[in-house]
Design a protein around this nucleic acid. Structure first.
Length: 565
RNA sequence: UGGGGAGUCGUCCAGUGGCAGGACGGCAGACUCUGGAUCUGCUUACAGGGGUUCGAAUCCUCUCUCCCCAGCCA
């Protein structure tokens, strides 16, 4: 669809892989993996990584595993595992029979730890968390060696076994790699590789009370799975020497790690911690709130997998920190939706219009095109009668410059129907608000064309009052008012930038009767307004729509500029 | 002040010794029964200084700026 004419650009990872294949590194094999921790929902930033890992694998005839890095039972849940699997599938990727968990490797990981101890490369340390911190030194000062660093292999083996057996309390002992307390790279200052956690794991239950740290488990998991290219984000760049160390000490298979910059999106936050906070403190309705940048949120909002994949291709892959304009995501969305969405008419803020010279008892069916971008989608009949609704925004008592729509004395076209001219309007006496229009129609313009070739400047959408379906419509804007809500002043709370207008609910909107049997997941273009989809809250005939994205709106831009003057 | 990484249009990404290019955005116009779509044009960038070279975004060198690292998180 969207990728018809678009030539994907290359990126440095693709070039590395091409080179590796050419040189027969890993025997020309390409095997990647997407390794999420099941402690939250996936967001658009993960989509970038998923598209990269699965995309590269399929491009080069390789494989991509889905592996959960589930080494911290205090934070991980089955709910997250399920949502992640669902989201990856939704994006259109298939891990085949290669669904793995770091917890699958706990026995092996334990054996590797024992091996490290036997080689004299790891020791059981009795320092408290605070002491470990103190001994680590700082960014500019070297650390001090732990007094337990010189324990004998035999003692270490015994202690580690007893850690496993549950003899010690949490925090009282750890297993540490014996590397270099003076290293400039803090990751090499005798990192903890096993800690005591008396927590039930979502997969291994109570089998273990010691759990490997991420750094230890991750690189070995990649090794076990014989991953060729371990693609990860930049912050792991200085963990790479540690991974190299583990793998070299153990003498096991060594994947190649390649780091790239994570995605940042304007007016959006992609920090798991902050997204969790939005959900748990009720700033949004849940992980799938249509304002959330989570894949489940985007899905409910009406984003298509095609548009997200297109976006991930277009943003490219590089190592520098960047802030991608959310307008690009919206562009990809509109481009996809424009080609696929059936057109339909809906009035968000209704203004009653009586066509005074139209027969009281007449009902006509106007033929409307379902999608001008795709004639194959056919036409439909839309009922027309004497009383209709138009959009409040489409009438001005005193039209400003460049306002082409309806105004007293002005003639416009009703889409697929007639030319009408406004001859009178009624105001609410108290508020002064225009509440009803009187118009005349020209019977000769049926269908929307004037035999005398006269032109009108505007075409408006409308709904026949007698046939209108009522619906609730939810309008969304960016969740944050600040372009980069992740960039905060010292001590500032990101929540002060939450957009108070990010959700506006309109309760009495009118839509075409042709949508009577529409169902959650269906999507449409409401002509002149935007793309909308049916929300799962649609039950028992009560229709609820989400505005996925507006159409580009030239008039809104002009009006904003006029007001800005 | 230690270690690691990065600086190219407003934004994102190419270009790796030979005319700085694409996409998004913005602006202007054409067309239009959606102020949509489509089409056309325009706009603007190599962090800075020195050097090598016939020629430097690209190589060397110095400087500046930004990001990451002091979890028994991942």
């Amino acid at each position: 669809m969207a990728e018809n004419e678009y030539k994907p650009q290359t990126n440095f990872i693709r070039e590395i892989i091409k080179e590796d294949i050419k040189n027969s590194k890993y025997g020309g094999r390409v095997h990647t993996r997407f390794p999420p921790e099941p402690n939250g929902y996936l967001h658009i930033g993960h989509a970038k990584s998923i598209c990269l890992n699965f995309g590269l694998a399929s491009e080069f005839g390789g494989l991509c595993n889905l592996r959960f890095d589930d080494t911290n039972p205090t934070k991980e849940e089955v709910e997250y595992v399920e949502s992640i699997k669902n989201d990856v599938r939704w994006l259109g990727f298939d891990w085949g029979d290669r669904l793995f968990y770091a917890s699958d490797y706990f026995d092996q990981l334990y054996q590797y730890a024992v091996q490290l101890i036997k080689f004299g490369n790891a020791y059981v340390c009795d320092l408290s968390p605070q002491e470990i911190r103190d001994y680590r030194g700082t960014l500019t000062e070297p650390g001090k060696e732990s007094p337990y660093r010189k324990r004998s292999v035999g003692e270490n083996l015994d202690l580690f076994e007893r850690m496993r057996a549950g003899e010690f309390e949490e925090g009282f002992r750890t297993l540490r790699a014996k590397i270099d307390m003076k290293a400039g790279n803090l990751n090499m200052r005798d990192p903890v590789i096993y800690r005591i956690l008396k927590a039930t794991h979502h997969r291994t239950g109570d089998k273990w009370c010691i759990y490997p740290m991420y750094d230890f488990a991750h690189c070995i998991s990649d090794s076990i799975e014989r991953i060729t290219h371990s693609i990860c984000t930049m912050e792991f760049e200085d963990h790479r020497p540690l991974y190299d160390w583990f793998l070299d000490q153990l003498g096991i298979y060594h994947p190649q790690q390649i780091e790239f910059a994570r995605l940042n999106l304007s007016y959006t936050l992609l920090s798991k911690r902050k997204l969790i906070e939005l959900v748990e403190r009720g700033y949004v309705r849940g992980w799938d709130d249509p304002r959330m940048p989570t894949l489940s949120g985007l899905r409910r909002r009406g984003y298509t997998t095609e548009s997200i994949r297109d976006f991930c291709e277009r943003i490219g892959v590089a190592k520098r920190e960047s802030l991608v304009d959310i307008a690009l995501l919206e562009h990809c969305l509109r481009e996809d939706l424009n080609k696929r969405s059936p057109r339909v008419m809906a009035v968000l803020r209704p203004l009653k219009v009586v066509i005074v010279n139209y027969p009281d008892d007449l009902l006509e069916e106007m033929e409307a095109i379902n999608n001008p971008e795709d004639p194959g989608m056919g036409t439909r009949k839309v009922p027309f009668s004497r009383v209709i609704y138009i959009e409040k925004d489409d009438f001005r008592e005193e039209p400003p410059k460049k306002f082409y729509r309806l105004a007293p004395g002005r003639e416009i076209r009703l889409r697929y129907a007639y030319f009408i001219k406004c001859v009178d309007f009624i105001k609410d006496e108290k508020t002064g608000e225009v509440i009803e229009l009187h118009c005349t129609y020209d019977a000769a313009t049926k269908g929307g064309d004037a035999p005398d070739k006269r032109k009108v400047k505007a075409t408006l959408h409308w709904i026949s009052a007698a046939h209108a379906l009522e619906a609730e419509i939810r309008l969304y804007e960016h969740l944050f008012t600040k372009e980069n809500p992740g960039d905060l002043e010292e001590g500032q709370d990101f929540k002060v930038y939450i957009n108070p207008n990010s959700l506006i609910t309109l309760k009495s909107c009118y839509i075409e009767p042709t949508l009577r049997n529409t169902e959650p997941g269906d999507f449409y273009q409401f002509e002149r307004l935007g793309y909308f989809c049916v929300d799962p809250d649609t039950i028992n005939g009560k229709l609820v729509f989400n505005r996925t994205v507006t159409l580009k709106d030239t008039w809104a831009k002009i009006e904003k500029m006029q007001k800005g003057k």
